[in-house]
Every structure is written in structure tokens, then in C-alpha cells.
Design a protein around this nucleic acid. Structure first.
Length: 276
DNA sequence: CGGCAAACCTGCGAGC
DNA sequence: TGCTCGCAGGTTTGCC
């Protein structure tokens, strides 16, 4: 499920019910997800008031008023589901339950347990090992073609592989890497180093546009629910290439069909004529 | 630094 | 119907 647009969708859903609310209870129903939960997490956060919920890259930041921050990541299969019933029975893979005032609960469900929940004290968030290396937010004004070109310069890997590197630009995953390269007309196999000038401008723009459109659609749903309400995202219907092997190239009348191949052990989809 | 495989897990669809 | 296999939105680690 979760690349930048899906995490943004989840954060917006969480913000609606968590911003400014007191965290009444934190229930940890196992000792770990991908990593052990921080020692004393429950005692540290219970009773504290939440400031805001926001996103950085694919990370969910639940910021407490006292400056501490819970850092959530959904991995491959994580969901955050909002409920209104504090006594709702625990479902399979409901590993963490946040209870806020007004009887609202948020269940962190993650079958594969690649997600995690960590904590950073006030002032330590920026230095968190998983945040400190992150590249720029692609939807920020600071992310431009020139910035992208500078970060790609000297990289000998393929451009697709570089887009998946969170140190170069944050939040892009396997679906939106293929989609952005398609709209920019750049072959996923091009050397990253080779993407500069107007090509980098076009790619930065394509990234912004595809992510913005995906957020507007509530993200993409492959097989899991995305939104905190349980509603599916709808952007999968707007994918140009991802999962569309054998279908006609949708963006022009080039007459080619979308091809799939394995690149760095991940599926890549592209149009062999439109993308060069 | 780069590339690649493996690791962490469960679920699901395809194919037999 | 039921089994096995391959694959899945992410990220880190370790090896060459």
C-alpha cells in the first residue's frame, strides 16, 4: 500500500481525529513489529496531548504537545483504521491500538509486520537514523528540476533505482517511480547521471503531478484498504503503466503496449517507445 | 560509492 | 478442492 500519497492520505485521516486530542491509552499487543517497541513507550505517551499528525517521506509523525514524537511506518502492508468503539474486539494483526478522548480508537494493523512504531524525544526527531538521511520532499517548493539533477549527478545506477533511493528524493516507491518516468518520457533504464537539464525539470514536474493526483484520489489500493475509514484509494484506476502489462500505451498513439521487466529485483512497467 | 541478494513476514492468485 | 510457487506498496544489512 504505502508510498507517499497513501501515507499522506492516512495522515490526513488520523489528523482529523487525533490533532489536539489527549491520548488516553496506548495498547501494544505484541512486543515488536519490525523492531521492538521502545522501552517504556506506553508510560511515556499515555495521558499526553497530541499536537498534530503529519507526514515526512513515508513516515507518520504523531507529535505530542510536550515535544516528543511517535514515528510510525506502514511497511508493505500496514493500515491505520479509525474506530468509534473502545470495546471493539481486536482483529487479526491489530498490533497497536491508540485510544484518544471522545472514544475514538486507531488500530495499527499490519499482517506482514514490516512496519514499525518508534519514538523520539523533543529535539531528537531530526537526528533519528531513519529520518536524517532522507532527501527532499518532492511536493515542496525546494524540490526542483535543478535540485533533482544535482542529486542525480554522478549516480551510475538506473534512474528507476535512483528514484527509489530515499536519500535522493523522499517518498517515491515502486508504483510512482514507474508512473513518473512514464509521464516524463524517460526510460527506467537510463543512467541517473544522464537525467539533467530539461529532462530533470520534466521528471521533477511529473513526480509532483502524479503524487498530487494520487493524493487527490485517496492513494492507490493494490489489495489492502488505504484510508483510515476503510475506504479504498482510487488512484489504481488512473495508473498509466503499473500493473498494465500488455495494455496499449495510454498517453499517446504510439501503438506500443506496456511492458514489464524486473529491475533491481522489482517490477518495472514502461512503454518502450514513448520512454527513451 | 554501487549493485545485488537476502532478510524481515503473511496473504493471495495462478497454475497444476 | 487443495497444494505449491511466486510475488507483493519497504527498508536494512552484508557481501562483493
Amino acid at each position: 500500500m504505502p508510498e507517499l500519497p497513501e501515507v499522506e492520505t492516512v495522515c490526513r485521516g488520523l489528523a482529523r481525529v487525533m490533532d489536539g486530542k489527549r491520548l488516553v491509552r496506548l495498547d501494544l499487543h505484541r512486543p515488536d513489529l519490525r523492531f521492538p517497541f521502545p522501552k517504556g513507550l506506553r508510560e511515556r505517551v499515555e495521558g499526553r496531548r497530541i499536537g498534530i499528525v503529519e507526514r515526512r517521506a513515508k513516515y507518520i509523525l504523531i507529535r505530542l504537545e510536550d515535544g516528543g514524537t511517535m514515528i510510525g511506518h506502514l511497511g508493505m502492508s500496514g493500515r491505520m483504521m479509525i474506530g468509534r468503539d473502545t470495546n471493539e474486539p481486536l482483529g487479526a494483526h491489530d498490533h497497536v491500538v491508540f485510544a484518544v478522548e471522545d472514544g475514538v480508537t486507531v488500530r495499527f494493523n499490519d499482517p506482514r509486520r514490516f512496519g514499525f512504531l518508534d519514538f523520539a524525544e523533543a529535539g531528537a526527531l531530526g537526528a533519528h537514523p531513519m529520518l536524517v538521511t532522507l532527501g527532499p520532499e518532492p511536493l515542496s517548493d525546494a524540490f526542483t528540476g535543478a535540485v533533482l539533477a544535482r542529486r542525480l549527478a554522478g549516480r551510475k545506477s538506473s534512474i528507476k533505482s535512483a528514484l527509489l533511493d530515499q536519500k535522493i528524493v523522499a517518498g517515491i516507491g515502486n508504483i510512482y517511480a514507474s508512473e513518473a518516468l512514464y509521464w516524463a518520457g524517460i526510460s527506467p533504464q537510463r543512467s541517473a547521471d544522464d537525467v539533467s537539464g530539461t529532462h530533470a525539470e520534466g521528471l521533477a514536474l511529473a513526480i509532483k503531478q502524479v503524487l498530487t493526483r494520487a493524493i487527490a484520489a485517496g492513494g492507490s489500493s493494490l489489495r489492502d484498504f488505504v484510508q483510515t475509514s476503510g475506504e479504498l484509494g482510487y488512484f489504481q484506476h488512473e495508473w498509466a503503466v503499473y500493473g498494465r502489462e500488455g495494455e496499449p500505451c495510454p498517453g499517446c498513439d504510439c501503438g506500443k503496449t506496456i511492458e514489464k521487466f524486473v529491475q533491481n529485483a522489482r517490477a518495472t512497467f514502461h512503454c518502450p517507445r514513448r520512454q527513451t
